[in-house]
Design a protein around this nucleic acid. Structure first.
Lengths: 211, 211
DNA sequence: TTTTAATCAGGTATAAATACGCAATGCATT
DNA sequence: AATGCATTGCGTATTTATACCTGATTAAAA
């Protein structure tokens, strides 16, 4: 555990020690101490990391850890419920992100889940982010899609083109002939009024047809 | 439980009955039967709902439930990992969404969490949706794609490629030779580790390099 | 100062895409 | 029954892209 508030640290510590399959092998109050402990051979499966700590904060600790000790999984345990932090932390190498108001059950589950190789964001944050970020695309895209009318087959071909497959490879995947795929490709290009496949992809992404 | 595959239903059922605080009070194989059971007075705290069922599917069941039995919490348990389904289901009134490949631990935790008034989306889906829909361009993608450092010239060429120009046309615009442009194009493709220009564009847009 | 990286450029060869014309099938709508 | 449309498929020709190789110049970094 890396957490600068003693009360919090000890509270969570005693909480976890009640779990028969968990053991707190070290607790430090900032990132520098955490790295020192790991250099000294303390290599836990999981490190619970607070974001705001003196000396070296949690984000920097995670970045350092993922370079030096990639097999140790950091889980952020923070009060900061800014969604950007979640993204940033996960990008930096965190395997989980928990708010400090999670229940004991969720904390324990998250630790086991990450220890088992999973990733976890606490449900409160996850739900909020999902409903917030995903509601727009759902409403916007159907409208944008309306302007183009690609057929099902053309959509399949379009997707495979965007993934870099050649006409021959696409033909194999769709169990049809190269010439047919060529036909679909051309019809895609004609419909979008674009000179070639690169521009077709660009256009389709902009129009929200490709994700 | 509302699930049309007997084996699945019975498997999960026996799984849950091992939990001392859980009891399966009814199991049906489609939405109509589920509503009938509730009309007959069977009012569980939680209903595990499969999306694809005959007669009445899970989505419709959830919509009906949230009108007639708002105090019963539906949790989707489905193989469908389309992200739109998550949004749709939650909007329809589901309090949770689980993929069928969740671990027993996660299933049990999710049920308790929802029973306690929370909402839950299984971590696999949650993580995927969060990282995908949030501002990937700035934070996540650079880490995933790693070695994206295109030079100024490469960026110019990349932009022109995305606009559909051929190597020759690009050469004219940049007052250089076709061969040089070809070189830049290849280096772009190599750096991104992608097979051709269409995939290059797709990748660059996703990474937020092209806008 | 040596080295690295970017930009430039040519050669050669193959693979792939683009452009055009043509036509049969199946499927749904009118 | 007829119409439109999607899907399928072939042939031919040209253009473009891709995959290798090579090397020169310049500017910045080690």
């Amino acid at each position: 555990m890396a957490e600068d508030h003693n009360v919090v640290r000890n509270g969570i510590k005693s909480l976890l020690e009640h779990e028969s399959d968990m053991e707190v092998v070290g607790d430090v109050s900032n990132g520098v101490e955490a790295l020192e402990a790991m250099d000294d051979g303390i290599h836990p499966q999981i490190v619970l990391v607070d974001l705001s700590m003196p000396e070296m904060g949690g984000m920097e600790l995670i970045r350092n850890m993922s370079l030096s000790f990639p097999y140790i999984s950091p889980i952020v345990l923070s009060m900061a419920d800014h969604e950007q932090y979640v993204i940033e932390a996960m990008a930096a190498g965190a395997r989980g992100y928990l708010l400090k108001n999670v229940t004991q059950n969720e904390l324990v589950f998250a630790i086991r889940h990450v220890a088992g190789g999973g990733q976890y964001v606490c449900s409160e944050l996850a739900i909020r982010m999902i409903l917030k970020n995903a509601s727009l695309p759902d409403l916007v895209q159907p409208d944008i899609n309306g302007n183009f009318d690609f057929t099902k087959r053309e959509m399949e071909v379009l997707k495979l083109i965007s993934e870099g497959y050649t006409n021959n490879q696409i033909a194999d995947k769709l169990f049809t002939s190269r010439r047919t795929v060529e036909g679909h490709r051309q019809s895609l290009i004609e419909k979008t009024g674009v000179p070639n496949s690169a521009a077709l992809i660009m256009n389709s992404v902009r129009a929200g047809i490709l994700k």
